[in-house]
Design a protein around this nucleic acid. Structure first.
Lengths: 153, 153
DNA sequence: TATTGTTATACTCTATAACTATA
DNA sequence: TATAGTTATAGAGTATAACAATA
C-alpha cells in the first residue's frame, strides 16, 4: 500500500496565483467598469495607448496579451465610444496607427491616478523590498511558464 | 498643463498577476486536460476530495472558489465519468457527502505526483526563502483584495 | 504566398434568477 | 422562511477558422 499523499490545493502555486489574481484584478475591474464605464480589454488598450500613442494593432496585441481578434473588436468599441481614432499607414494600407482622441486622453488622465491609488492601497502592508521581490518572483514564473530559462538572478 | 503620467501596464500589479497566473495555470491545465482528460474545475474538485474525502457540495464550493452552480455541474460530469459518488446525508436529505470512487482515487494518485513534479520544475530557479515570501505576499494581497486587514507579519 | 486586420462560429465561463426538495 | 442543490438563460470571454485587402 502506498503512503498517503500530502497535497492541498490551497498551497499549490497555480491555484494560489489564479485565486489571488482573480480577486485582486476583479476588484480593480469593478472600479473602472462602474466608475468609468469601460471593460477590462478596453482598459488594457487605453492604458497602452496612453503610454505609447500611435502603435499599430499588432503591437497592441503583444503589449496587452489580447489576441488580434479581441484587439480588433475592442478597438471598434473604443472607437465607437470616441476614445480612439485610426490613421491608415500610407506605406502599408492594411495597417493603421492607433491614437487616443482628446476624450480618450482625458479619460486616461482620470483613470490612471485612481488605478495607482488603488494599487498603493492594495500594497499598503507590503515593504518596498517585499514588493520588489514579488515582481521578481512573478517575472521568474512568467519566464519559466513561457519556456524561457532566464539568466540567474 | 499637467505633467505627463508615467504609467506602464507591464509594471502594474493586477496585470502582472493576471498575466502570470494565466501563463502558469494555463500550462498545467494543458497537462491534465491532455494527459488525464479532465477540465480545470474537475481537477479542483478531484484535488479537494483526494485530500478531504466526504465533504459536502457547499464545502467544496468554498474550498475550490467555484460557485455552487459550477460545483453542481462539475460533480455531475465527474460522476458520469465514474470518478465521484454521492451518499445522501440521512439527517438532511437535501445534502450529500461526496466521495472519490476507486477509479477517482486512482486518478488522483496518478495526477498529484505529475502536478507536484510540474510545480517543482516551475519553481526550479527559486530559493526556499523566495518561495515562502512569494506565498506570503500572495496571501497578503488576497486578504487585502477581500477587504480583510490581516494582523501585521 | 505571407501578413494585417475583420468577420463568423462554436465553445467555455460567469452571473443571476427561478426552481425542487427538504429543513 | 431559510437552505442545499439543480436547472435555465443570457452575457462575456476564448479559440479557431475563413475571409478581404494589401504586400
Amino acid at each position: 500500500m502506498s503512503a498517503p499523499i500530502d497535497f492541498s490545493l490551497d498551497n499549490f502555486l497555480p491555484y494560489k496565483l489564479v485565486k489571488t489574481a482573480e480577486h485582486v484584478a476583479g476588484g480593480l475591474a469593478r472600479l473602472y467598469e462602474e466608475e468609468f464605464g469601460i471593460t477590462r480589454p478596453e482598459w488594457r488598450i487605453l492604458a497602452t495607448l496612453g503610454n505609447r500613442d500611435g502603435v499599430k494593432a499588432k503591437e497592441l496585441s503583444a503589449e496587452t496579451s489580447l489576441d488580434k481578434v479581441r484587439v480588433s473588436r475592442t478597438l471598434a468599441s473604443l472607437e465607437s465610444k470616441g476614445y480612439v481614432c485610426r490613421v491608415r499607414d500610407q506605406n502599408d494600407h492594411r495597417a493603421a496607427y492607433l491614437h487616443l482622441t482628446l476624450k480618450g486622453k482625458e479619460l486616461y488622465q482620470r483613470i490612471v491616478p485612481r488605478a495607482l491609488e488603488w494599487e498603493s492601497e492594495m500594497l499598503a502592508g507590503m515593504s518596498a523590498a517585499q514588493y520588489r521581490d514579488l515582481f521578481k518572483a512573478l517575472d521568474l514564473l512568467l519566464a519559466k511558464a513561457d519556456g524561457v530559462t532566464p539568466s540567474p538572478l
